[in-house]
C-alpha cells in the first residue's frame, strides 16, 4: 500500500466546549479523488478546517506526508502543498478579481503564474470580463469560481474544496468538474465536500459518509452510489 499523503487518526474537533467530530480516521493516498458526503451539520466543513490547520483538533493527529502537523499553523500546511477552499468564498471584496486570483499564487514564485491564470480563465469564462472589476461586485456564482480559481493558482498537491458546486449553474458545474478531472488526471489529489451526492460519488475513487461527526460508511464512489442507504438518505430515491 502506498503511504498516505494525508492521514487523519482518531480526530476530535469542534468549537469551544462543543465536540463536532468524534474519533474520525481517514487516509488520502496520492492521486485519490475523495468525496466527503453528509447532511447539513454533519461536520464536513469542520473536518476540512481541522485538516488544514484552520481549526485546532482537541484530540488525535493529522499527518501530511507522514509528518505530524496537528499543532502546526495553517501556513505550514500550505507550504507542504495543501490548499483549502473554504465554504462561503472569503474573497477580498475591495480587491480586483485578478488580484484575488494572483494572491493564490503569492508563495510560489512567478514561474508559470500567467499560464495558470490563463488556465483558470479558460475554466471559468465568466471571470474574463470581470478580471479588473472588484471581487465584491461579482455575482454569487462568479465568487465561487474566483475562490476555487484562487485555490488552483497555488498549484496545490492536495486541494480541499468545500461545497464544490455551491451557487453554480449546471453548465458551470460541468466545466468545473471537467477541469478538476483534468487536474486529477495530471496527478492532483483532491478532497471535495459536496451536497450534490450524485455528482460527488460519480467521480470519487474514495468516499466517506459523515453522520453526526462520525464516519459511518466508506467505499469507492460508484460502490456507494448503488448503496441503498445512500440512495435513501441522500439521493431522495
Amino acid at each position: 500500500m502506498t503511504e498516505a499523503l494525508l492521514e487523519v487518526r482518531d480526530l476530535r474537533s469542534g468549537y469551544g466546549d462543543v465536540t463536532v467530530l468524534w474519533d474520525v480516521s481517514l487516509g488520502v493516498r496520492p492521486g485519490d479523488f475523495v468525496a466527503i458526503v453528509g447532511s447539513n451539520g454533519a461536520g464536513k466543513s469542520t473536518l476540512l478546517a481541522s485538516v488544514s490547520g484552520m481549526l485546532r483538533p482537541s484530540q488525535g493527529h493529522v499527518l501530511l506526508d507522514g509528518h505530524d502537523m496537528t499543532h502546526s499553523p495553517a501556513e505550514a500546511y500550505v507550504r507542504r502543498g495543501l490548499v483549502h477552499v473554504p465554504q462561503g468564498r472569503r474573497l477580498f471584496p475591495g480587491m480586483t478579481v485578478e488580484e484575488n486570483l494572483l494572491l493564490g499564487a503569492y508563495r510560489r514564485g512567478r514561474d508559470g503564474v500567467r499560464q495558470d491564470l490563463e488556465r483558470v480563465l479558460e475554466t471559468f469564462p465568466p471571470l474574463v470580463p470581470r478580471l479588473h472589476g472588484l471581487a465584491g461586485r461579482l455575482s454569487g456564482g462568479e465568487q465561487q469560481m474566483c475562490a476555487i480559481g484562487r485555490g488552483l493558482m497555488g498549484r496545490p498537491r492536495v486541494l480541499l474544496i468545500d461545497e464544490l458546486s455551491l451557487g453554480l449553474a449546471p453548465v458551470a458545474v460541468d466545466a468545473l468538474l471537467e477541469a478538476v478531472r483534468r487536474l486529477h488526471a495530471d496527478g492532483l489529489t483532491i478532497v471535495v465536500v459536496e451536497q450534490d451526492v450524485q455528482v460527488a460519488l460519480e467521480h470519487a475513487t474514495v468516499a466517506y459518509v459523515l453522520e453526526a461527526g462520525r464516519v459511518t460508511l466508506q467505499g469507492s464512489g460508484p460502490e456507494l452510489l448503488t448503496d441503498p442507504r445512500i440512495r435513501a438518505a441522500y439521493l431522495g430515491v
Binding site: G140, Q195, G236
Partner: peptide, 13 residues
C-alpha cells in the same frame, strides 16, 4: 434568491 443552495437532495425536498 437561491434559497436552496448548499442543500442535499433530501433537504431540497
Amino acid at each position: 434568491d437561491e434559497a436552496m443552495a448548499g442543500l442535499n437532495a433530501t433537504e431540497v425536498d
